[in-house]
Design a protein around this nucleic acid. Structure first.
Lengths: 130, 130
DNA sequence: TTTATTGTATTATATATATAATACTACATA
DNA sequence: TATGTAGTATTATATATATAATACAATAAA
């Protein structure tokens, strides 16, 4: 997976968000093994403790689970609770829409202008395939 | 003006953003006097130093200017350079659109779905007046 | 059985952020 | 003229974040 860290927000929060996107976009599927904390940290070029904090957060949300019941050395996996993933996906999409429309409206744009600007921007940035 | 501070990003950056929105949305007009640092800080329930940092940043961007040429006790005003405000408004709107479409696409939505979801969300949250 | 790997924990350090308290200079105003 | 107000500066303190360097116990793998 690809990482994109900027520096005006806590890194561990950005890691949580980007891992969550990987889960709800289907880049990581229910039951899939998750790379080890060390590997993920190296991949994202981030300290192990920082990545550990992100994974612990996702585990507390139920999105990641320990792979075996007994102890740890088996690593983590994506939850098989698809309804939980769907629920989080819906919430996430709604929060993006909320944030976006709030910002556009605060600029003084009305609903028609917002829709047309979105359509215009999408067509400008459409990849050749679509 | 209304303030809305959350706690996962530096406060001074959020102050810069929200003051900037006030400028480019026309809530504060070119030439308008800006309240004193102390008053703004009290209004936003934020430390004076924090608000000062935000105002200094906006001044460095040319959006705010010292009210008189001589010294300070006259306070600040909004720049009368309307083209600068327009330019920043365009950049801001574009960055919002960029951020939004990037997030929606990363969820696996195609352009048609994005437009329809925007339209649907806008109609659901439309105020009575519109 | 030996070695490597897993998640986890601990300690220390550096940095950025936010606040509080205080003070100064120059100007505006009463 | 005397007082208040503007922006600004300084010092100190608390907190969150991020990193580094280790270490450990239990499991997996060679």
């Amino acid at each position: 997976m690809t990482w994109n860290i900027d520096y005006d927000r806590p890194i561990w929060i950005q890691l949580v968000e980007q891992l969550q996107v990987a889960l709800i976009s289907g880049e990581l599927n229910p039951g899939d093994a998750v790379p080890s904390v060390r590997d993920l940290a190296a991949d994202a070029q981030v300290n192990i403790n920082t990545m550990q904090r992100a994974l612990a957060e996702l585990e507390s949300r139920g999105l990641l689970v320990p792979k075996d019941n007994r102890w740890r050395a088996s690593g983590r996996a994506v939850t098989e609770d698809r309804s939980l993933i769907d629920e989080i996906k819906l919430n996430y999409a709604r929060s993006i829409l909320e944030d976006f429309t709030q910002k556009m409206r605060s600029l003084g744009l009305d609903d028609g202008e917002i829709v047309s600007k979105v359509a215009e921007y999408l067509s400008k940035t459409r990849s050749k395939g679509e």
